[in-house]
Amino acid sequence: MAAVVSKNNKLYNQLMVATVLVVTFIMLVPIYWIASTSFKSYNDSVSIPPTVFFEPEMTGVVKVFTKRTILRKDPSPAKLAKSAWYEKIIFKAGEKVLRASAFPSRLWNSIVICVVSTAIALMMGTFAAYAFSRFKIFGKDDWLFFILSQKMLPPMVVIIPIFLMYRTLGLIDSYSGMILIYTAMNLPFAVWLMKGFVDEIPIEYEEAAMIDGYTRFQAFWKIVLPQSVTGMAATSVFCFITAWNEFALALILAPRNVQTAPPFIPSQVGSGIPDWTAIAAGATIFLIPVMIFTFLLRKHLLRGVTFGAIRK
């Protein structure tokens, strides 16, 4: 039959491919919309009906990086000549720049907290994963279950006592507090995912090395670790993205100085009128690393989202 209907089949297949393209297009429209809004002028961003084609400008991007106030009188030509390019852009929007906004420091906070917590989670996770993979442990499945169950806790449920604990220890709004909580959030994941990767490394390699006189630790350090570099890279990117995207814990535990980007971006509603160009610019800048990482990770996504249970 296959031979007879092959022409029909081909047409059908093409139709399906076309449908896939349409679906992909629809799924991507929201992302395009937010990215394009960051380059719209204020008036284009709130026009009815919405503007699809427009002259791109940097106003929104400059706005998210600056604190501004309303321009009460137009700047003198001399002053205008002295102004930087971004100040001119803001003058054109009827405002003037006062100083830089908190956005760069919020991004920096996000980077510091996510990188450090990822590194710690990865380190502890790899060690634990190795032990769980290679050694006999009493009640191993129960321990693994316990570790994974920590990942299932709803943030809103644990946050009340954590808030109180942090308050007592003076960890609210501190880098160490945020790093600790993000490490705890990612550790179960790191253990499970790394265990999957370590399981795949043939145990014979270490055995051979140990026969050659390596200690157990040397075997782990010199044989197993280099073998699991891919796994560690994938795990750390996953941990990083999870921490990067986290919102609820940061909302409560990092209210100000070490606030990360996710709670900051919605707070850029503008002073008198919601300015979607600035919010969109902030969101877009924030999403760029995630998009890059998604492409880097594409081979490991399935494994990641199932805690290493399904490998492909």
Binding site: M27, P30, W33, N245, F247, P262, P263, I265, V290
Partner: peptide
């Protein structure tokens, strides 16, 4: 991979920009 992009994003930011949509 393009289709998988949405699920990798921050839910908070997704909620925010869908508010615009």
């Amino acid at each position: 991979t393009l289709l998988l992009l949405p699920m990798m994003m921050s839910p908070a930011v997704v909620g925010l920009f869908w508010k615009l949509l």
